[in-house]
Design a protein around this nucleic acid. Structure first.
Length: 345
DNA sequence: CGGATTTGACCGGCGC
DNA sequence: GCGCCGGTCAAATCCG
């Protein structure tokens, strides 16, 4: 494992949680599967910069995960390794995830047809969006879950105040904010295809940013999921996509109008609900992990507000190359990396 | 013509 | 209390 890395960022707290390889990513993603009830999970509560009540990582997409957690904070010095090690005892990463994801990712970012196994590939548009490999990087960003944060939440960040609706509501009734999860993606396209169908319902100018924020709703009936898309004013090449809520349906975008493109169900050894989000995340992860490292470290205005002086593997060759070259080399790198992912123990 | 997008208005929370 | 601002609504418009 070399060179793969990424971040999970908690904007409320201003901390990034780094992972250096895919194994660590899954450890990290496990973090988001921690959905402790009140009074549980004291280990996580002890950690300096992450909320123990994060909803399941996977839940933002299509289901739940069974992972447990390990992570790292950039701000909090890596000395949190102590806790990390303590948390390692909780790990029980699900098997089979990486393998399937990798194949999907390769297909999604390759030039050939997507693998039929991929739920991502089921949407021609999204496949195209990812196929062109405009997505250079990604940061995973957790915005917290007010519903489960409870007392642990002390302050809600700007933009995290999804609380009002114009529809009349019962007296004193507050809108319950759904769990949120945000990606920071280096991409030329604002609205990244993610396998679901979205309807834009609003656009607002963002304070202190020249770029507007767009609001989307999942078009699936009764699905409460929304997402916001905006560009980072610090780095216009970075798109911040924030998901809110949890899809109530299993099948992504292909539900409508493209039944012929529907991917076959995932292999029986994989939970159905793991299909899409895993594919998406990993496709992003893989592309980003190979490309963004040097930029993240050297470019202070790339949309990440945190210093990037974390210990990382040396950049890949593409990492030092200009973006265009990155995009060119990504295919090969991606294909190179896939076997290593598959072979993860 | 139906669905998606645009865009100005409106609502409500929050800070001062 | 007031103004700012994020989020949403909904009519108008666009588009396939």
């Amino acid at each position: 494992m070399s060179g793969e890395k990424g971040e999970i960022y908690h904007p409320d707290h201003g901390h990034h949680y780094l992972f250096r390889d895919v194994a660590e990513f899954y450890d990290l993603s496990s973090l988001f599967s921690q959905r402790p009830g009140p009074g549980t999970n004291s280990l996580l509560h002890d950690l300096p910069s992450i909320d123990a009540s994060f909803p399941a990582f996977a839940d933002y997409f299509n289901g739940t995960s069974d992972h447990d957690t390990v992570y790292r904070s950039v701000d909090a010095p890596y000395s949190s390794n102590v806790k990390k090690e303590a948390l390692h005892g909780m790990d029980h990463v699900t098997d089979g995830v990486i393998c399937n994801t990798s194949s999907v990712s390769r297909a999604d970012c390759g030039t050939g047809p997507a693998t039929p196994n991929s739920s991502m590939s089921s949407s021609s548009s999204e496949a195209a969006a990812i196929d062109d490999c405009k997505i250079d990087s990604m940061v995973l960003k957790q915005e917290g879950d007010e519903e489960v944060k409870g007392e642990a939440t002390t302050k809600v960040e700007e933009g995290d105040k999804a609380k009002k609706v114009n529809k009349p509501r019962a007296k004193g009734e507050k809108r319950q904010r759904q769990p949120r999860f945000a990606f920071m993606t280096k991409s030329e396209v604002d609205h990244l295809e993610d396998g679901y169908r979205w309807r834009k319902y609003g656009q607002k100018a963002v304070k202190n940013s020249p770029y507007p924020r767009s609001y989307y709703r999942c078009t699936t009936q009764k699905c409460p999921v929304k997402k916001r898309v905006e560009r980072s004013y610090q780095d216009p090449t970075v798109v911040i996509t924030t998901y809110e809520g949890k899809h109530t349906h299993q099948t992504p975008a292909t539900l409508r109008g493209s039944a012929h493109l529907l991917a076959p169900p995932p292999p029986p050894n994989l939970p159905l609900h793991m299909g899409f989000h895993r594919d998406l995340l990993m496709s992003h992860l893989i592309s980003s992990s190979m490309i963004t490292a040097p930029m993240d470290v050297t470019n202070p205005s790339n949309g990440m507000t945190m210093p990037m002086n974390f210990p990382l593997q040396p950049p890949t060759q593409s990492a030092n190359a200009p973006h265009s070259e990155n995009q060119l080399t990504e295919y090969g790198l991606l294909q190179d990396i896939v076997p290593s992912l598959i072979n993860q123990p």
